[in-house]
């Protein structure tokens, strides 16, 4: 996974200026780029899609109101997700729940895949036809991927969305979620194993 280049940064600075100026096209671009991931992220925390959509909408209003104060110390996406997480925390708190991404939690989905000497019990399949365009059971492979992400435990889901989908830097993901880099790597790996298992079931 790559970091931001200088071109990305100047591109982003121009985008931020356009957002601050109230440019609708710029807002549409940012909205379409991040909104689905924001709802996916928030519904992992709130366990409710309708609340996640409301909180995401609130976060967008806050993003536009405060864009003048964005100084580029983080990426724009990192800043947007920080605002979203604050909104989701407030909502979860109102429902009497606290939000933490600490602890790797569950076993990985490969726990039973190996024999006592650490060898595969069953040889992994060759995924010859696993492409984005393929349709299985009426849904594209990409829709199956997002459905699998929506079944992940909250911490795994948060890391997968921020790091593997939104492409935030590792350090930024750790700062937003308040977790260590080691913990983030375990969560990312486990989340990916779970998505792999869901894809394997399609093949």
């Amino acid at each position: 996974m790559r970091g931001m280049t200088d071109i990305d940064r100047s591109d982003e600075a121009a985008l931020v200026r356009a957002l601050a100026a109230g440019d609708r096209a710029a807002f549409e671009r940012v909205y379409r780029q991040h909104n689905a991931a924001m709802v996916r992220f928030a519904s992992g925390i709130l366990k409710n899609r309708a609340s996640a959509e409301e909180v995401t909408q609130d976060a967008w209003v806050s993003v536009l109101k405060n864009i003048g104060g964005f100084e580029g110390r983080s990426s724009l996406a990192g800043w947007i997700f920080t605002i979203l997480l604050n909104k989701a925390r407030t909502r979860a708190g109102r429902d009497g729940r606290s939000v933490s991404f600490d602890g790797a939690g569950e076993d990985d989905s490969l726990a039973a895949a190996f024999d006592g000497r650490g060898r595969w019990k069953d040889m992994p399949e060759l995924w010859e036809k696993m492409t984005a365009e393929r349709i299985v059971a009426g849904r594209s492979v990409l829709q199956h991927v997002n459905a699998a992400i929506e079944t992940l435990p909250p911490a795994q889901r948060a890391v997968l969305v921020l790091r593997a989908q939104e492409g935030l830097e590792a350090g930024e993901v750790c700062a937003i979620l308040d977790i260590s880099e080691g913990n983030m790597r375990v969560l990312l790996h486990r989340a990916r194993l779970a998505v792999r298992a869901a894809l394997d079931a399609l093949s």
Partner: peptide, 17 residues
């Protein structure tokens, strides 16, 4: 499989968005 999973996960971000 893990590389394909990584790439499809990234591609799924804005699919159907």
């Amino acid at each position: 499989q893990m590389r394909i999973t990584r790439d499809l996960t990234a591609a799924a971000n804005t699919s159907g968005a």
